[in-house]
Design a binder for these strands. Structure first.
Length: 891
RNA sequence: GGGCGCGUAGCUCAGUUGGUUAGAGCGCCUGCUUCACACGCAGGAGGUCACAGGUUCGAGUCCUGUCGCGCCCACCA
């Protein structure tokens, strides 16, 4: 069998990825699903915009661990893949492509443009599929979906019509966030607030028919051209006499009324606010309350409109400069003070958003949010960990209506038709031929498309066939779990909960697990502009998928972001290589074993072998399995991965195999040893499989289907049973204590050798005084081999205290050889070390004594704690004693 | 302004009902190419757990305050 010294992931990973797909391994047969044993989740559909980044890989890896675990628990497990059409984002990249050819989308026309975007989707969608495959994600490709698929588009229309009919969708003229760059309205969550150093300009508004004036502070002087009132607080005594009078708008010399509105904060600035109903959300409300004129002075292109008089045609920021200059000149600018302004920027292109009054479609959120909050409060949906819940509730409680129409071409067209003759709107599931109100045929579909998140919000059920009651929908909905980054809690998670409850009457998932972001080694957010984006495929090529997965998983503790460092991946590659070489040891020796008819147990993690190391490793295996299963249940993936790392490396390899190796060399009576070793090894592979699917598949196939007759075994390790611990196997027995004692003796010997700079190669004579236990001959032989000693075992207390000593409450180890390289320097070093240890021990004993003589401690502390402390104290005392003697010996 | 979180070894971080010399990976030092692995093995140095109080027999862990840092939400012009 070909078994290289170094594991080369590139040789195996693509092969198994392909095999998993070709053999349709993860394609679920819905007919075989057993109620109560079903696990389903949907992938958060990546944008077709480009390629996956490392954050997706973390997301997908965590999901894959969960999915493979459930699958190995024997549940019917569906992981549904797919992609999102990502309206605005995709339209932008395609437009950018067109720009390279020197064309705009308008030149192309709507239909042709849409064709180009579909082309793009074909190309990049394929790339994303490849990436998901290489991540090892065990998705069901036969159920792959795209948000613009026919079925999903049907779900979108169905939802829209239902919400409209229930009055939960409305159309109207309101203030929205307008991105002048993207040329569309965007929702509140698509804007990002940013503190910018700006100014607060104090402007004088002369009172009509008086020499007096009111001073108004503003951060946006250009909007004054659209002012239609000044407002003060109703109880502000300073201005009470002016209410009802008018002031003159500088520059345009328009007369505007002075009104009162409770929203004005008398303590801010001068307590007088200029009111620009068409360009400020607050002013919009004031304007409505007082029926003020709405003068639109900034247009969709962020340039001043004709209403801006002399400034018409100027960019809004240029207009600001000129207006400030003009006011300064006319003496109407009283004061300019530096001020930090919160500006809203478009999430997508970072352009400063312009609040504009515009006719858009909205979803009434309050009633939806109520049900969503109730679902979380009542535990129908659980956040794990739950520390994100307050954020969810805070947002839900303050929710505002959702602007869902976008002035884009790429997306789901709003299913509403405008009648040119009667002016009425028809919202319908199917394109109407005539206007149902006046039977006119002059119907035109609304030009807008829906916010991308509208269709994503239906994802958990639209992908399963809803609104039809398909077998998939009936079987897999509600899904069991949602795993995603917390950065899309508002965009996606909340909306799925709301729309799921509204459309299906049921929560879309039972649990939500949110992980952190992957940041670069310097904890910077990854972004294309910073150029610190890590391409998962590149890492996979260099280190292998399994290594990358493990690196991500061990770093992914809940609630914190991951700072991805390459040395972490290198360490994980070391781990895969370690596993590979442990396997190599077993496989290369297997030929000599003469073992026949070995088959994996599959069931309980037990062995018939009474060999000390076998009993020990099976207990450790059970403990590991127990910890891992519990950790996975609670979505503590890092803990699970870390546990396996430690088990495989520091227990299975460092101790178990090291001892087993000695047994193998003995050559005879090996059968039980081999059976135990293979059983433990095979169970270890199964434990590891959800985390490292590729290498475990490769090794398992070699072990199971390589030579033995194992036809009744599953085709793939991913359908083998996930190991479960049994309670009895977790207990500590005599053999286990013996093995722990063996470890301690070996470690003591190694330490002595290093401390005294003994020849690392020499086999030295030693006497081991075991105070209560006794080693069987084969165990003593193992201890001797691992510590390179010829050990004579005696029971009871040590006699003559000479040579090099190491003592514990259980044993004294005495190496007879004088330190071969011992010289003054070494003695000094050893002395210093011993002195330090003595000091530490004295302190520890002092602490223990204080505690143990405290009656309150003795009465309140649990018995176990007290007993532990007593034992520890005894151990310190013995060590201290031996150290003092050792020191004397040196002098 | 509100909410959430963080501050533990040189670096990145674990540490879930409070329990007794505080852990890992990387880096560092010493030794070892031992017939699974130098992507390795053995040994080691390194921490007043941000600071100050409090609760407790006992605090990295719970409470209060201070300082420093981060994120999210928010219509204060």
């Amino acid at each position: 069998m070909n078994f290289e010294k170094v594991y080369e992931p590139q040789r195996f990973e693509p092969h198994w990825a392909q095999w998993w797909i070709d053999s349709r391994l993860y394609q679920v047969d819905v007919a075989k699903a057993v109620p109560g044993h079903i696990f389903s989740l949907v992938i958060p559909p990546p944008n077709v915009t480009g390629s996956l980044h490392i954050g997706h890989m973390l997301d997908h890896t965590v999901m894959d661990v969960a999915v493979r675990w459930h699958r190995m628990l024997g549940e019917t497990t569906l992981w549904l893949p797919g992609m999102d059409h990502a309206g605005i984002a995709t339209q932008m990249v395609v437009e950018r492509e067109l720009a390279k050819e020197g064309i705009t989308r308008r030149q192309l026309g709507r239909e042709e443009f849409e064709r180009r975007v579909w082309q793009w989707k074909e190309e990049y969608g394929g790339r994303i599929q490849t990436q998901i495959r290489r991540e090892g994600a065990s998705v069901d490709w036969s159920r792959e979906r795209f948000t613009m698929d026919h079925g999903l588009s049907r779900a979108v229309r169905e939802t829209f019509v239902r919400l409209w009919e229930k009055g939960l969708i409305y159309r109207g003229e309101y203030m929205v966030n307008w991105c002048p760059r993207c040329q569309t309205a965007i929702s509140d969550v698509e804007t990002a607030h940013e503190a910018v150093e700006g100014f607060l300009w104090h402007i004088r508004y002369p009172l009509t028919g008086s020499h007096d004036a009111l001073t108004v502070a503003t951060t946006r002087p250009e909007t004054m051209l659209g002012d239609t009132a000044l407002a003060v607080h109703p109880e502000d005594e300073r201005y009470r006499h002016l209410v009802g009078k008018t002031a003159t708008l500088p520059i345009l010399h328009r007369e505007i009324p002075i009104i009162t509105d409770p929203i004005v904060d008398p303590k801010f600035g001068t307590g007088v606010v200029k009111v620009t109903p068409a360009h400020d959300p607050n002013d919009f409300e004031i304007g409505k309350r007082h029926s003020l004129p709405f003068i639109k002075i900034i247009g969709e292109d962020a340039r001043m409109t004709a209403a801006a008089g002399p400034y018409a045609g100027l960019d809004r920021f240029e207009a600001r400069k000129r207006i400030v200059a003009a006011l300064e000149q006319s003496g109407e600018l009283i004061k300019t003070e530096p001020y930090t302004v919160n500006v809203s920027k478009c999430d997508r292109c970072k352009t400063v958003v312009e609040p504009l009054v515009s006719t858009q479609w909205f979803v009434r959120m309050k009633p939806l949010a109520e049900r969503a909050m109730e679902a979380v409060r009542s535990g129908q949906i659980r956040f794990v960990p739950d520390d994100r819940e307050p954020v969810f509730f805070q947002w839900m409680e303050n929710i505002r209506d959702w602007c869902i129409s976008r002035q884009l071409w790429w997306g789901h067209r709003i299913p509403a038709w405008h009648c040119a003759s009667c002016r009425k709107i028809t919202v319908a599931r199917e394109t109407p031929a005539t206007c149902p109100h006046c039977h006119s045929t002059e119907l035109q579909q609304d030009p807008d498309v829906l916010d991308t998140w509208f269709s994503s919000g239906l994802w958990p059920f639209s992908t399963l066939g809803w609104p039809d009651k398909t077998p998939d929908f009936e079987t897999f909905y509600p899904t069991s779990l949602l795993i995603t980054g917390f950065d899309i809690l508002f965009f996606w998670v909340s909306r799925m909960i709301m729309l799921g409850l509204e459309c299906t009457g049921c929560v879309p998932f039972r649990q939500v697990h949110m992980h952190g972001l992957v940041r670069d080694a310097e904890r910077q957010k990854m972004s294309k502009t910073k150029g610190n984006v890590v391409d998962p495929l590149e890492l996979i090529d260099r280190f292998g998928t399994d290594a990358c997965r493990v690196a991500l998983l061990v770093s992914a503790s809940p609630g914190t972001d991951i700072a991805l460092k390459e040395d972490r991946i290198e360490a994980s590659r070391g781990f895969t290589n370690k596993l590979w070489n442990a396997s190599r040891l077993l496989f290369l020796n297997l030929g000599r074993s003469g073992i026949r008819n070995w088959a994996p147990s599959g069931g309980a993690l037990t062995t018939d072998s009474r060999a000390t190391e076998d009993v020990w490793i099976f207990q450790r295996l059970n403990v590991a399995a127990d910890t891992v299963n519990h950790a996975l249940e609670r979505h503590r993936y890092h803990e699970a991965a870390q546990t396996l790392w430690d088990f495989v490396w520091h227990e299975f390899c460092d101790w178990y195999l090291e001892v087993k190796k000695l047994r193998f060399r003995e050559g005879s009576g090996l059968d039980p040893h081999w059976r135990a070793a293979l059983t433990a090894y095979e169970a270890t592979l199964r434990l590891l499989h959800p985390f490292m699917p590729f290498i475990t598949e490769e090794l398992w196939q070699r072990l199971i289907h390589g030579n033995a007759t194992n036809e009744q075994q599953p085709r793939s390790i991913s359908f083998a049973r996930y190991p479960a611990a049994s309670a009895t196997a977790l207990k500590t027995t005599h053999e286990i204590q013996i093995f722990e004692l063996m470890k301690e003796v070996v470690e003591a010997a190694r330490k002595l050798r290093a401390d005294h700079k003994l020849d690392p190669k020499a086999t030295l004579a030693a006497t081991l005084y075991l105070h209560s236990a006794t080693f069987a001959p084969e165990d003593l032989a193992a201890v001797a081999a691992l510590s390179k000693l010829t050990v004579e075992q005696r029971s009871g207390a040590m006699g003559e205290q000479s040579g090099l000593l190491r003592s514990t409450p259980e044993f004294d180890l005495q190496i007879h050889a004088a330190a071969s390289a011992q010289n003054g320097a070494v003695t000094g070093e050893a002395r210093a070390r011993i002195l330090k240890e003595i000091a530490n021990l004295e302190r520890a004993i002092e602490n223990s004594d204080r505690q143990l003589s405290d009656p309150v401690f003795l009465s309140r502390a649990p018995e176990k704690v007290v007993a532990n402390l007593r034992a520890k104290r005894e151990e310190y005392r013995i060590q201290l004693d031996k150290n003092r003697k050792l020191l004397e010996g040196l002098e």
